[in-house]
């Protein structure tokens, strides 16, 4: 893991990525570097390319040109979603996506890092280590009392947390979190900011968010996207004072 060159000491290295859908440039020469252990907030108006960027990193969409390198040495553009997930990139969707018919416990059990082959799953028995791991995650995402409830019966905020818990169970190096506080109450939003900071102690995190108060509460470096490329990057105060940002996004 001692790559030399521009990718050294990066957990995520996105360089000159372009993706065109039917003539629409969703990503236009996008470049982004994330250092190990960093948390980054991505903001930008609708259609700025935030979700497409997530799709490219997680293997759902293949870029037309450009490099996407994970952990300094792995080219992500050649891999599909399961392979990338197994490398250690977790993704939370914009709309909370949990297994509605499974209990909170089972949602986490299925997410635990481990063998993903059907042959293993057919004969797998729950181990003590797995149980302890799930207990730990339940504590982190504050769902201790809800372990036996079905995913579908949780409140919106609880589903968001369960999904974050599922990502943690995967033990990723890098978490991509798409609008984690959409539809949350102020209290839930504050708790989520705290939760993400806690997660960031051991993992790199990319958060896409519209809620500027939330981004401010995270207190991390901010990248503003516009029309598929980086418009501005820096502290929240720097970015929100940038006249280009004010013009396309905040001013409206």
């Amino acid at each position: 893991m001692t790559a030399i060159g521009p990718t050294s000491d990066t957990v995520l290295y996105v360089n000159g990525v372009t993706k065109v859908f039917d003539g629409f440039r969703a990503l236009n020469n996008l470049s982004l570097v994330l250092r190990p252990g960093e948390m980054r907030a991505i903001i930008g108006p609708n259609g700025a390319g935030k979700t497409t960027m997530m799709d490219v990193i997680t293997g759902k969409t293949r870029p037309d040109t450009g490099q996407v390198v994970f952990d300094a040495d792995t080219d992500l553009t050649k891999l599909d979603e399961p392979a990338i997930a197994q490398l250690g990139i977790g993704r939370k969707f914009q709309k909370p996506t949990v297994f509605e018919h499974h209990t909170v416990w089972d949602n986490l059990l299925l997410s635990l890092a481990g063998d993903r082959a059907p042959g293993f799953a057919l004969f797998a028995r729950q181990t003590k280590a797995e149980r302890e791991r799930i207990e730990g995650i339940l504590r982190t995402v504050r769902l201790m009392e809800h372990r036996n409830r079905r995913g579908g019966d949780l409140s919106h905020g609880q589903k968001q947390w369960l999904e974050i818990g599922m990502l943690l169970a995967q033990e990723p190096k890098l978490l991509l979190v798409d609008e984690p506080v959409a539809g949350m109450t102020d209290h839930e939003t504050a708790q989520t900011a705290e939760l993400l900071r806690e997660i960031n102690r051991t993992r790199s995190v990319v958060v896409v968010e519209h809620d500027m108060d939330f981004v401010r509460a995270l207190g991390v470096r901010v990248t503003c996207l516009h029309e598929g490329s980086v418009l501005s990057e820096g502290t929240i105060d720097h970015v929100s004072a940038d006249p280009k940002v004010v013009e396309v996004y905040l001013g409206r």
Binding site: A85, F99, E100, L110, A124, Q170
Partner: peptide, 22 residues
């Protein structure tokens, strides 16, 4: 079995299972 749980998870949220590495 756990296989069956994954199967139901695939039924209910296939892309979620894929992003979990299945």
């Amino acid at each position: 079995s756990r296989y069956g749980k994954v199967l139901v998870a695939v039924r209910d949220a296939e892309s979620r299972t894929r992003f979990l590495g299945y």
